[in-house]
Design a protein around this nucleic acid. Structure first.
Length: 524
RNA sequence: GCGCCUGUAGCUCAACAGGACAGAGCAGCGGAUUUCUAAUCCGCCGGUUGGGGGUUCGAGUCCCUCCAGGCGCGCCA
């Protein structure tokens, strides 16, 4: 990875010159060399010296075989990579697992996402979380972490009871309770229960039966979406094992009783609020205690880093869960939370409101029927998690040919076709010729983009941000299309070299698409 | 009232650990291929980064404040 080589060399020179250890910020650049750093400005403060002088001193000592020249300009240090340096990097991009990294060193990471209530089908917000979480899991694995995907099923509490009540009402031929579940699937489940002759079993049974059925639907929908969960954890199991009581016992020094309820003094452990109710007046638990127990359980299963993807309605509970973990002696910063904002579906220029409990929501499977798995996954990763996403259905349907996902997939199919064409002409695509013959503007731009792949991957993992991948792939496809348009491949004097460039591109395209769970078609 | 998120070109979004003149796509206008996929490429047009202060050598990015929108807010999960 060229950027790391630049960084490392600059670190060494700074240490030699000033005895300072610093990890400089290295930026890709087009105008000012290939890489630029502002490290002289940073050093200027600690060394109390003129940044221009520092930049010149560092630049004067920066030497590396891959560097063609180094300049100091207005305090910035610009590094120009030699042609040979780029070509060498391109060669490694032809390897099978180019971009694979050992950042994680086998650390065990648990990524929990979707975790939809088992009371109805998945909706489009779940679909966004699924695309995001699944891509994160794939990225973490690619970077040397032992990462697992987990789905938590909240099969306890009021909503669980309500589910059984809603089914019971249907069995009696009545309308569900006011705040009950009203979708067609409730009727469907009720009919199944009737068919099996178990309508006398009672609410608890109905709830359990429905959860089993609904979770199975959810699992199937997610598999269709190419999202696989390693673990399905049920809240009822955690409770059955006595984990909640265990946590209550361990927290007892930080629990007070007031107004007939038990309060956890979460403020002592960094929560915004002084205390939170954990046991209600009626003796039942609020969500908090089981949630702390659940997260404790994650650590107990051996995970070292926990990442939760949550909806914006869960923001407030994070500090109290962290407080709980801290009180139990676990490092709260090892629970990272990524808030994924809502999805607005736009139809006829208007937002479709989603309200799950009213049985009015947009089904994830419906979306997949409309736009397909590839487009859905790609689109959901074109927005940062922290921004609400407007999904314009009319646009997605009408202009599906202009979807960025097609643009990227088209590049993949196009390259595949070129390589097949070359083979049909009796050319061995494995023979890369003399790569140093690649010198044209479009060739060099494409090479530089290809070898950026490992940097993008590692940035994506470090920032926990898979949305960098689609943007990178669109760029890469764009550079390839431009190269293709300007230069003949098969039949040109440099056909071998250009075919190798094609192979490097398709290699990275394929891997990038795989990491975000989008297919790489051979023909379009 | 408090907390979190968002506000960048007509539209949808970028801007990689504050960096060197804010970039793409779409829309609009004009071009390109007798040869490997035109779902492609090239060019033009388009901006006081919601307003105002501050920190800094440097701010779309950090801090304060105001405006607009979204979400949440002690015994629902």
């Amino acid at each position: 990875m060229i950027r790391e080589r630049v960084r490392k060399r600059i670190e060494e020179v700074i240490k030699d010159l000033y005895g300072v250890e610093i990890s400089p910020d290295i930026n890709r650049s087009e105008k000012y060399g290939d890489f630029a750093t502002n490290v002289a400005f940073v050093l200027a403060k600690t060394l109390k010296r003129n940044p221009k002088e520092i930049a010149e001193e560092i630049a004067g000592k920066l030497d590396e075989p891959a560097f063609e020249r180094v300049e100091a300009l207005n305090g910035f240090i610009n590094v120009y990579i030699s042609h040979e340096g780029w070509i060498k990097e391109l060669e490694s991009a032809l390897e099978e697992n180019y971009g694979k990294a050992e950042l994680g060193k086998g650390e065990r990471v648990l990524i929990e996402f979707v975790s939809a209530n088992p009371t109805g089908p998945l909706n489009v917000a779940n679909a966004r979380a699924a695309a995001f979480g699944d891509a994160l899991v794939r990225l973490f694995r690619f970077c040397g972490y032992r990462a697992d995907a987990e789905f938590y099923v909240n099969d306890c509490g009021r909503q669980f009871e309500l589910l059984g009540e809603s089914i019971e009402a249907r069995l009696k031929g009545e309308e569900p309770p006011e705040d009950g579940y009203k979708g067609d699937y409730i009727v469907e489940i009720a009919e199944e229960i009737k068919k099996e002759g178990r309508e006398k079993e009672g609410r608890e049974f109905f709830s359990r039966y429905a959860v089993e059925r609904i979770v199975e639907w959810q699992r199937k929908a997610l598999e269709r979406y190419r999202v696989h969960f390693d673990n399905w954890v049920f809240e009822s199991e955690i409770r059955k094992k006595g984990k909640v009581e265990e946590v209550l016992e361990k927290l007892k020094d930080n629990i007070v009783e007031e107004e007939g309820a038990k309060w956890f003094l979460s403020g002592k452990f960094g929560d915004r609020r002084e205390k939170r109710v954990v046991v209600k007046k009626d003796g039942s638990y609020t969500y908090l205690l089981p949630d702390i127990a659940y997260h404790l359980n994650k650590f107990e299963r051996g995970y070292e880093l926990l990442i939760d993807l949550l909806g914006p309605d869960h923001i407030d509970q994070v500090p109290s869960i962290r407080a709980g973990l801290a009180a139990l002696g676990y490092p709260p910063e090892k629970l990272e939370v990524i808030i994924i904002q809502w999805v607005n579906l736009i139809q006829d220029g208007q937002k479709i409101k989603m309200a799950k409990r009213k049985g009015k929501f947009v089904d994830m499977e419906w979306l997949l029927d409309e736009v397909g798995v590839d487009a859905a996954r790609f689109f959901f990763l074109m927005r940062k998690a922290s921004s609400p996403l407007d999904f314009d259905l009319d646009l997605a349907k009408e202009e599906s040919q202009r979807n960025p996902v097609y643009y990227v997939q088209y590049a993949h199919a196009r390259i595949h076709n070129v390589i097949e064409f070359a083979k049909s002409k009796g050319i061995d695509p494995e023979d890369k010729g003399d790569l140093s013959n690649l010198k044209e503007k479009e060739e060099m731009e494409l090479i530089k983009k290809i070898v950026e792949f490992p940097e993008i991957i590692q940035d994506a993992v470090r920032e926990r941000d898979p949305t960098r991948i689609p943007f990178y792939l669109m760029d890469l496809a764009s550079f390839y299309h431009s190269f293709y348009q300007h230069h003949r491949i098969v039949g040109s004097p440099y056909e071998k070299e250009r075919l190798a460039l094609c192979r490097g591109t398709i290699n990275v395209l394929k891997k990038g698409l795989e990491l975000i769970g989008v297919s790489a078609p051979l023909r379009m």
